[in-house]
Computed example of a mutant assay.
Amino acid sequence: MLLPTEVLARATLFEVIRVDPEPPGHDEPHPGKPVAVWSPAEAQPALTLIAALPRSAPHPCGQHPGWAIRAYRDALEPPLFEARFCFGCHEARLHGPAVPPELARQFFRPDGPEGRALLARFRACEPIPPVVPAGRMSSLPQPELALPGGMLLRPWETYDAPSLVAACKDPDIQHWNRPGHRTLAEAEDRIARFRGLWQAEEAAIWAIAPATGGPAVGLIGVADLDLRGGSGEILYWLLPAGRGKRIMVPATDLIARWAFDELGLQRVRITHSVANPASCAIATKAGFPLEGTMRGALLHADGWHDEHLHARLRTDVVSRP
């Protein structure tokens, strides 16, 4: 493929453009979003690939160009030329005051090594969008979610503080979840922190409580949220008053479905000590297959524990428990 070599010699700046589907106006650059700015040295590998593109016959695809490169002599001046590429119809169009008519429309092979390498360079310029856009979670109200057996997932309230204090004194919760010890005032502060974590889009924590009212008997939520990467980790515990009701498996499934369907995560994990078979059973029954063992991953009161890693993807087909 031919480029206007005299114009290239004057260029001091290049832009890579992700082209919009709207057609351009007459004698105007194709609209789009700049995704990279290159110096001549940075642009040279792409320019070399463009010059090496083999010619091709037209291949109409009914689409618009996907990528363009603009050359400037000065950032404050109009571009010297723009070359826009459609990798579907094999067409490249060059536009600019110094582009001779014979170079204005050319056809190239996009499926050869040069075409694939050029497209890869263009795509590498475009940032990967976040899986969950910032602000989505904080704009959502924290919902109440019904559980079987007359139980409910709801936001934590200040009157639930004694439940947090009790959890810190329960030997099983203390051993596996390491909540530390809290006074009533510290528990109230922690509940206020739960609300702050939602607004900060760092965690979503629910109380497990009777649907008819009353204090929390357990906790479940998604923490360690990475909204840009689309992942989080489910954590849970139950006080003795909530055990034996067979609610933790459906609660875990419900939180996973909320994380996928409402929040938009791609992957949710559960980790637990290999010495905690009850948690392993909950994860497996809730549709989180065991992926492996993380050696020496968490320090408990009795030393370092290996941990099981379970995970569930948004695309997994899981029956409701």
Rank of each mutant, 00 (worst) to 15 (best):
T12P: 03
S319I: 12
G196I: 11
A216W: 01
T252Y: 01
E291L: 10
P155W: 04
R257K: 11
D316Y: 03
E262L: 05
L2M: 14
H305T: 10
P24A: 14
A223L: 13
W38T: 03
L47T: 07
R312V: 07
G292V: 10
A161Q: 01
I50S: 01
H59S: 14
E126V: 15
L118T: 06
P277F: 11
L94K: 05
W156E: 02
A297M: 13
G213N: 11
A104R: 15
H26F: 15
W176S: 07
A207Q: 05
N177Q: 13
S319H: 14
V217P: 00
P58V: 09
A68M: 14
D226E: 13
P58R: 09
Y236M: 07
I247P: 01
A216C: 09
A211S: 14
A192D: 12
P321Q: 05
P130Q: 05
P133C: 06
A275M: 12
D172G: 04
P4S: 04
A207Y: 02
E307V: 01
F108P: 02
L13H: 15
N177F: 09
M294L: 15
E144C: 10
V99R: 05
C125M: 09
R312P: 00
G214L: 11
L47F: 08
A207N: 02
P210N: 07
G242W: 01
G214K: 11
P141K: 09
W237D: 00
R105N: 13
K245G: 04
P162R: 14
R84V: 11
H95F: 15
D253R: 08
F194P: 01
G135D: 10
G218D: 08
A68C: 11
I282K: 00
P148A: 13
S273H: 10
I128R: 15
A286W: 00
P155D: 09
P113D: 15
G232Q: 06
P143I: 06
G112V: 12
G218V: 03
E126N: 09
